[in-house]
Simulated assay, not measured.
Amino acid sequence: MDTVQPVSGNRNDELAHEAPSLCIVVPCYNEEEVLGETASRLKALVFDLSARGQVRACRILFVDDGSIDETWRIVCELHERDPLFTGLKLSRNRGHQNALLAGLMYAKDRFDAVISLDADLQDDIDIIPDMLAGYRGGSDIVYAVRESRETDSFAKRTFSQLYYKVMEKLGSDVLYNHADYRLMSKRALSALSEFDEVNLFLRGLVRLVGYPSSVVYYKRAERFAGTSKYPLGKMLSFAFEGISSFSTKPLKFVTLLGGGVSALSLVLFVYFIVQYALGNTVAGWPSLIVSVWFLGGLMLLSLGIVGQYVGKIYLEVKHRPRYIVEDVAE
């Protein structure tokens, strides 16, 4: 059995030793193939938690992130058959992070604790009792962390490990091998709601909340149906979102790179002058073409990095809503 490992302090909360009301938030995008099985497994888990007195009330909240399949129809049918299931439908696809935030903000004033997890249930739901134990032990946030990445492909495993190392080098406080499977108390969710940025990277924002936390480890399973909604392109985009949201070091890197190229250019200029003075003919075309292509590529790279930050500022100052709820099944 996985154990809860305290990270810091005790939560000063009158509910710390009582069975909490719980909401399980499940973001969904085109998940018609898995929703039936997911609902069945979660329902069995909730009944077991209630029977053991670990929760006093519970709801399972599916957040439809603008799906174009039958996801919302299935959510509505689940709700009609059993009020245990509730649903939010966003007006359009806003991405996993916004859908997750919509569910968290909906649940924060209605429940003592909220657990978020993906619809494919690759994350082990059997550790939820341990997460609740962490909550009752005083943790406002309980992080579910993967023990290993044995079930990932070699490319995905290598990319993930590299990503976490880069984030660490850039000074970002991101928990290694933790995604968005976590428990948060009402107090922690209230603190999270004070962060109003549009460019969301929740696994970084939650760390900034800073309340007492603990960690539970688990093994990730294979997806039992459907396909992943995070191909390589989205993974790369999400990775840069995390880096640019919590670190300005890429901008400093551009500055240092520009200074280094300028210094190199000065050294080469002195070298060519000396060679000319010694009567040596310096071949022009090869060195010129290489220099032009190198500097051109360097400038485009630098402009691209700066442009990403400017684009994020542009989105932030507009203060557009991060999501719009179209329908609610409750």
Rank of each mutant, 00 (worst) to 15 (best):
V4S: 05
I324M: 03
V75L: 11
E168V: 03
L257Q: 10
R322L: 05
E330I: 06
V270D: 09
L42H: 03
E330D: 12
A102C: 07
Y230E: 09
P83Q: 04
D69H: 13
I313W: 15
K234F: 12
V142S: 00
I305A: 07
K43H: 12
V254T: 10
Y211I: 15
D109H: 07
D196A: 05
Q97N: 12
G87V: 01
V325S: 04
I125M: 10
L315V: 04
L200I: 06
G297I: 14
R110H: 13
D130I: 02
L192D: 10
R207D: 05
A225M: 02
Q97P: 05
S67M: 03
S67E: 01
Y163D: 05
G304H: 00
H319C: 10
A329D: 07
N93C: 10
E32L: 03
D69R: 11
L189V: 14
R182Q: 12
V7M: 10
L121N: 10
S160W: 03
I141K: 00
L49I: 06
C76Y: 03
L251P: 02
A57G: 11
F272R: 14
K43A: 13
K234I: 15
A239F: 11
I60Y: 00
S244Y: 08
E18F: 11
S265L: 15
S21G: 08
S190P: 05
D140V: 05
C23N: 01
I115M: 11
L251S: 04
P321G: 12
M299H: 13
